[in-house]
Simulated scan of single mutants.
Amino acid sequence: MGQTTRDLRRHNRTSVLTRLYLHGPASRFDLMRATGLSSATVSNVVTDLVADGLVAEAGLLDSDGGRPRTLLEVRPGYARVVGVDIGETHVQVGLFDWTLETVATATFPMDEGSPEPAVLAALVTAGIEEVTAEAGADPGELLGVGVGVPGAVLPGGLVHAPTLGWSGVPFGGLLAPHVAAPLHLDNCARTLGQAEMWRGAGRGAERAIVALLAVGVGAAVATGSPGGVTSTTSEWGHTVVEAGGAACRCGSRG
C-alpha cells in the first residue's frame, strides 16, 4: 500500500518536531536544511504546529546582510509527562514539562529483598498523585507515564526482575487501573540510555554507553539514528565470571 497524504503529513510534522525537540531552537531555514523539506512544506508544517500549541516563536536570529530569522522552539507548557524509576532501594517519581525539564519530584524508600509488586504499584500511584498535586496538574491530562524497572519487560507488561525476586509479574496490569495516561514500561538502563542521548551526556553523539553502578551493575548501549534514537540494553551485573563461585541473590553462582 502506498503512502497516503495523511502519512506524509505525519512524517513531515515528525521530522520538524524531532529536529526542534532534540536540538533546540531553529529557524525555518535551519529546519529546511535539517529535514530536506521544501520551504513551503516547512512553512505549512510550522503554521500547523504553532496553531496546535506544540511550537512557539523564540526570538530572532541575526543574519549577515538579510532580515533576522525567527527562531522556533517546542513549547514546554504544551504537555507534561511523568517518569518513574524503580530501583532496588527506592521508587522515584518525576513530573516533567514537554522539554523534559523537572517540575516536581517525589522519592519513596522501599524495603530491601523481594518487595511485593502490589506495594510498589501503590508507591508509584502515590508518587504520581503527589507530583501532579504539587504542580497543580491533572493526572488525567498527562501525555504519558514511563516506568523504568530493574529487569526485563515482557509483552503485556510482565516483568522479570531477579534482583527484586520477580518472575513474570504482571506489573503493568497492576498499574494500569490507577494510571489515566498512556503507560509505558521498560528496562531502567534502557530508559536512562535513551534520556542521555536525548538530553544528557550523549546528546549529539552517534553512540554512547551509559553504566549504572549501584546495588547492581547495568549498562545501556545507545546508538543514534537520523530520525532520533534507538537503544539496546546490556546487563553487565549478572555475567558468570567464575564457575561455581559465590552465590548471587539472583539465584545463580559466580
Score class of each variant (00 low, 15 high):
P177H: 08
R199V: 14
L185F: 09
V145G: 02
L175D: 06
P162L: 05
G113C: 09
L143I: 03
L174C: 06
A189I: 03
G144R: 02
E116A: 14
A122Q: 14
T107Y: 05
M197V: 10
A135S: 12
V179W: 09
A121V: 13
E112K: 08
L185T: 12
V215F: 00
E206R: 15
E141G: 02
A219G: 04
E130Q: 15
H184C: 10
A133N: 06
H178R: 15
A137N: 01
P155Q: 09
L123F: 04
L185K: 13
V169T: 14
R207E: 14
L154K: 03
A201F: 07
S114F: 02
V131H: 05
L142C: 02
P155G: 04
P139D: 11
M110A: 03
E196K: 03
A126D: 15
G113L: 08
W198N: 04
A220E: 05
A137H: 03
A152G: 00
V229S: 09
Q194E: 14
V169D: 05
V145K: 09
E101S: 15
G144M: 04
W198C: 07
V124P: 07
G202Q: 06
V147K: 06
G202D: 07
E129Q: 13
S167F: 02
T191L: 15
E116T: 11
W98D: 11
P226A: 13
I128W: 10
D186G: 12
F96P: 01
W198M: 12
G165K: 02
E112A: 10
E112H: 06
T163I: 07
H184Q: 11
A220N: 03
E134P: 00
T132N: 01
A176K: 15
G173W: 01
I128D: 05
A122N: 11
A208K: 04
A222N: 01
T132I: 08
L120W: 12
A222K: 01
I209N: 07
H184M: 10
W198I: 12
H160W: 05
L154V: 00
T163F: 01
P115A: 02
I128S: 02
V217S: 00
L183M: 05
A219D: 00
